[in-house]
């Protein structure tokens, strides 16, 4: 796991592929193109790149109009502004008419780091997941991001892709296959399952390795498609392990943990522990220090696994 790539960097590169392959792809940004990594697309395809200035509501509305006229717009900003400031434009101008807009947001979660709590989206998945017609995706690494961005461009309808600022370990090669609506079992285990997405997938794999040394067998499932959710895989793994830990860089209210709890609660009640922000905002700090502090490091996961086992 030596190599690291930020999902936002992989996004910027995937856009260049789309720029070449699909003339209908256009990109919009809100004065953050160097940070969201859309700038390179802008340099290569200037006529298909629209800087909308610091005006996210107008940006998402313009994306809706472009989609209504047959374009495939990728609308980018930081997750907090894309889903927060422009929520109702997304709701009424994109999700309600099911327009083909891809909301590709970066700088999600507390791993934004130094900028602090005002800039760390911890509620975006909950907000987007509550919208009918919206697909919600959270990539674990660069390769998955690349495949996800290409898949989103193929899919007809609104998609939210949640990416990060931080460089994260490379987990997958080109043989990996991302599919909207499918979860991936990365490691089979029998005692407990960690169902994670985003940068928590790498932490989950590390925690599983640590626990294996103690004789605890942990399944790791990458649930990068939060909506639609892969019920079949989740139920199968939960049935095998009979204890589930969910892990996300998001508030424990409304995100991946909630989505899985909803399914298990209705179809297969299973002891659960949700790892995430415990209904709190983040703060300034170095990304990995913050992740440790808020219980999102591998130690936090190990502790959660023990709690889940104790509930069995």
């Amino acid at each position: 796991m030596a190599n690291k790539v930020a999902t936002r960097d992989a996004y910027g590169k995937a856009l260049l592929i789309l720029g070449k392959e699909n003339p209908n792809v256009v990109v919009l940004d809100a004065d953050l193109s160097k940070s969201t990594k859309t700038a390179e697309f802008g340099k290569n395809y200037p006529e298909r790149f629209f800087n909308m200035g610091i005006a996210e509501g107008n940006l998402l509305g313009t994306a809706a109009g472009l989609a209504a006229a047959g374009k495939v717009p990728f609308a980018s900003s930081f997750a907090i502004f894309a889903t927060g400031r422009a929520f109702e434009q997304i709701r009424n101008s994109i999700a309600y008419p099911k327009l083909n807009v891809k909301i590709a947001a970066t700088h999600a979660g507390i791993s934004v780091g130094e900028d602090g709590g005002s800039h760390q989206a911890i509620e975006d998945v909950a907000i987007m997941r509550a919208l009918p017609n919206m697909v919600v995706l959270v990539p674990a690494d660069g390769e998955e991001t690349r495949q996800m961005v290409l898949a989103a461009a193929e899919y007809e309808g609104p998609v939210y892709i949640r990416m990060g600022r931080l460089e994260v370990p490379v987990l997958f090669g080109e043989d990996y296959h991302f599919e909207i609506g499918k979860a991936k079992v990365l490691k089979e285990g029998t005692d407990v399952a960690i169902m994670a997405n985003g940068l928590m997938v790498a932490a989950a794999l590390e925690a599983a390795e640590l626990l294996a040394g103690e004789g605890i067998s942990v399944s790791v499932v990458n649930v990068s498609s939060v909506k639609p959710l892969d019920e079949e895989t989740i139920l199968r793994v939960a049935k095998e392990t009979r204890a589930v830990v969910t892990a996300e860089e998001h508030n424990i209210i409304g995100g991946l943990g909630s989505a899985i709890a909803e399914i298990l609660g209705e179809k297969l009640p299973t002891p659960m522990v949700r790892v995430g922000l415990k209904d709190s905002f983040g703060e300034s700090g170095r990304p990995y220090e913050l992740l440790e502090k808020y219980g999102l490091g591998k130690e936090g996961l190990v502790k959660a696994v023990r709690e889940a086992l104790a509930k069995k």
Partner: peptide, 25 residues
Amino acid sequence: VDMSSGSLGQGLSVANGMALAGKLD
């Protein structure tokens, strides 16, 4: 109906997007 609307303030942005697409095409 070319665009769903009714939540005030959103239509001009959408119209801009349609006009941009027209120019691109």
